[in-house]
Design a binder for these strands. Structure first.
Lengths: 344, 344
DNA sequence: CTGTTAGCGCCTTCAC
DNA sequence: GTGAAGGCGCTAACAG
């Protein structure tokens, strides 16, 4: 029971390395190929030999080494995932859902964190592709030219998540950030809000939503919202500072639209600290992972973007392609506005 | 610029697979080994040849395949990480910090999610070890006997995170969950609380903290807190239901101690919905990722366990070992109680 | 400096 | 049924 080393009848390898197919073969007194067959197609091996081999496998603690490459056109059963971050993040749901579906199907996942940088993405891509993954999941549709080239040359199924765009590399599952910005603008306008402000996380998609919000307001004849741009990664502390800056500069908004629920959390804290009633005196609009936000503060409005759904669909599409299907997913998962306590 | 396939002067491989060392060699008119050397030790190759090779590499878009195994005693530069979950989770910080440090050092990470199950851990372990990772990070010190055996046989550096224990497999960085339970009990007693309740996430470490809390209260002559046990994974909705159940059963606590900040979030929502003032009528104690919790609700007390610090230290210890050091980390990172608005 | 040889751990093809 | 030979992509060791 206790993890004592080497209670097994096998002496272990002199070099301390894990046992190989050959070691097992020697131990069982058969040839390497027989061991291989016993493990891969047990039914074609005579029961007596099979038993001997299995015993040797058990005794040695043998585990087949998964070669990245081999003579057979074999898959690596490795799938690479690139997201900006998983902390305080709207992407954790997607990654979790992806991993769950892929793991069930017998694949393993290499994860890379880009920190919202396309250069970082390029570096990671380069490193990850050396593992010859069977497929790859990316966040967004913005990549460097070099990345696009490498990806198209890799010849593996790809999914870009969390965005919509005209020229996806391969498959695409996400939603339109412009549509989110517009929808938020319209919903808030409909509730009578006229003085807007925004806390923007300075990443491409955050900017897209902010600009769409601003443009939609402009169409209604409203001035551009007071805006504070914040460097990723998002933290509650950052959101809190952001709102403080906004208010200190003299902005006096009825509603502040935040790039993420995490920032919105911080904004709520600052509003609370200043004695502002939410949403009566200052409404707060978030974005992202409904699960952790919506239950929390009934006063917080937010946008549910179905992060887990994107992950599951991406994974299923990849698996289908790896199974030989001609699937070419192009899916807009949309989003849902969750509006709280209209007070106008 | 646009990702058109095959603008390069290289015809590509007939089978559509990525180019190999051999392909590059053929294209450059040299032998494979020269290509290998040009890439790994450029200085020992004559400039003229070097240039030819580099050109061929560029033209073909060659990327070396990282073999898991080879003739050389080469490392896989792959490090496996096992955590229960990354969603709504106190573990995301640790994973992010781990990945950051490891990636900077040129390693890649295989991630596995155990869902708080040691059986699942065993399966994942089995699959992950086939990749021959250079090192491994585990959560907690509770593993199946088979897992312990496999791990000790793997002969790679290990770190167990998020716990303290007497017989770690190898290295250990975490804190004592019993100490957390006791400290929470004492701190709350010191503020005059006498009627306790607990919302427990039903995982080994959560139970450990709850039991320690209960035992410490018993020492002070207090009855065991009303307790609701909840199945992982933690969500705000779950915490909310939990508190509802607790109160519906007739419990009338002054303070409810939650297994995680995520559950605490939900509890706060339920308290709010019932018109209970926090912390005057019901205090809420969380646990976990201070970053997202403490800034949020000034009324929420919590325990900061320094998840990122554990990740960074684990990564650094592993890197040291891989670099040949004799490091054998045994670190108690402790925790910090963050108490809000004492109202007694 | 460069090429040839050999071998890593495994599996496929083809004999026995 | 079983084994021997050969090959996958790559790199150390040894030749030239």
């Amino acid at each position: 029971m206790s993890g004592d080393r080497n209670t097994s009848p096998w002496p272990g390898r002199p070099d301390g390395k894990p046992p190989t197919l050959k070691d097992v073969a020697r131990l069982a007194g058969v040839s390497p190929i027989t061991v291989s067959r016993t493990l891969n197609q047990p039914e074609i091996v005579r029961p007596a030999l099979r038993e001997k081999v299995f015993r040797a496998v058990r005794e040695s603690g043998y585990q087949p080494a998964m070669l990245t490459t081999g003579s057979a056109p074999q898959e690596s059963r490795l799938i690479a995932i690139l997201v900006p971050t998983i902390v305080n993040s709207i992407f954790a749901d997607t990654v979790q859902a992806l991993m769950q579906t892929l793991t069930e199907a017998g694949h393993q996942t290499l994860l890379g964190l880009t920190d919202y940088s396309t250069e970082r993405e390029e570096q990671l891509l380069d490193a990850l592709l050396r593992r010859r993954p069977d497929a790859m999941v990316l966040t967004g549709t913005l990549h460097t030219a070099a990345s696009r080239l490498r990806l198209s040359q890799a010849g593996i199924p790809l999914v870009e998540c969390w965005d919509q765009g005209e020229r996806p590399l391969d498959m695409l599952v996400g939603f339109s950030h412009v549509a989110v910005g517009q929808a938020v603008a319209r919903a808030l306008l409909a509730r009578g809000y006229r003085h807007f402000a925004s806390l923007t996380l300075d990443d491409p998609r955050g900017r897209l939503r902010r600009d769409a919000l601003r443009d939609e307001l402009a169409i209604q004849g409203l001035a551009a919202p007071a805006d504070v741009s914040l460097p990723p990664p998002a933290t509650p502390a950052l959101g809190r500072q952001g709102l403080a800056r906004l208010l200190d500069v003299g902005a006096c908004p009825e509603v502040v639209v935040c790039s993420s629920d995490t920032l919105a959390h911080g904004a709520l804290a600052e509003a609370h600290a200043r004695g502002l009633r939410v949403p009566e005196e200052l409404a707060v609009m978030g974005f992202g992972n409904l699960a952790s936000a919506a239950h929390l503060i009934p006063a917080l409005s937010t946008v549910d973007v179905r992060g887990a759904e994107m992950g599951t669909q991406a994974a299923e599409a990849l698996l289908a392609r790896l199974a030989g299907a001609e699937t070419r997913l192009r899916r807009d998962t949309g989003f849902e506005l969750v509006m709280r306590e209209s007070t106008r």
